[in-house]
Design a protein around this nucleic acid. Structure first.
Lengths: 152, 152
DNA sequence: TCACTCCCGACCTAAAAAGTCGAGAAAGTC
DNA sequence: GACTTTCTCGACTTTTTAGGTCGGGAGTGA
């Protein structure tokens, strides 16, 4: 039940790319320093994002990375999935494929519900939202609940 | 973004205990076979549940495990937290303690929202609900969405 | 051609996940 | 009181994942 450093890094790097806009490519090094991410690790992450078609890149002087799509069309879920694969698995199996014995039958529905609820946040927030600091109402409402900030 | 085998095992074992009712203690071996969990691993899990006050146990012939509280008072979140600690962390830090640089500032709110949404499912479902196969309306509704079953 | 920057496989280390072993300690039974 | 049963619990192992590092190669622009 946790978000890996890799996924967190990936989203932050993507946010920086979104913030940079359509202008010129951003160098890996600048992404690394502005978000305080180990450069060589970040390069691998950016490469994965590129392979997944989220990011484009050019080498050489004036090279760097940029978003393949408008920031408003890229959700946090897209970025997380690009580096982590499918969201919210149980024992590294997607919940809908698991068979539970007898009494535990309904447990599957619980994991499904958790996944659905997770997606509903991650698929709704775009990189453009994040850069603007203006999250979708439903998400903002969740984060505004004082109880949501309690450590548990 | 995944549920560990341990947490899954713990919940399933707890469900079996809930299903057994207030009668006599259930042996570890029976829990292991009915839910197909490696016995010795399960014993460690049950011990943790005991240490967290969720379960009680007695040794010897006629010994076994039982729930310390009524099944309707034990949520899935209680069980998961007993074996995994706090739910939904980023880089093993609770999201509310993380500082994000500049453009990524709002990302924290996203992780907070994800956690809140996860809790809202796990804290609402009790072991009694699971045994009855009758989940709370909000959770059942989430699991009923056809889209929730799509692998992603 | 040269400096720059991404590309990418190989490698590494530490920690976590998942599970096993074996001795011991309480509880009930005969 | 011996015996059996069942939980207790620390130590150990094994496998996988997380989170990196290294170093060469290859495309790009000046």
């Amino acid at each position: 039940m946790r978000v890996s450093a890799k996924a967190d890094y990936a989203v932050r790097a993507a946010i920086e790319l979104a913030a940079a806009g359509e202008g010129e490519p951003v160098k890996g090094e600048r992404l690394a320093t502005s978000q305080d991410i180990p450069l060589q690790f970040l390069e691998h992450i950016l490469l994965e994002l590129k392979h997944q078609g989220l990011v484009r890149a050019r080498r050489g002087a004036k090279g760097g990375y940029w978003l393949a799509r408008p920031a408003a069309d890229v959700t946090v879920a897209d970025v997380v999935r690009a580096v982590e694969g499918p969201i919210a698995n149980v024992q590294s199996m997607p919940p809908e494929t698991i068979e539970y014995a007898g009494n535990a039958e309904s447990l599957r529905d619980v994991w499904i519900a958790v996944r659905a609820n997770t997606r509903s946040v991650l698929e709704r927030v775009t990189l453009a939202d994040l850069v603007a600091g203006d999250l979708p109402a439903e998400v903002a409402a969740l984060a505004a609940e004082p109880d949501a900030w309690a450590a548990r």
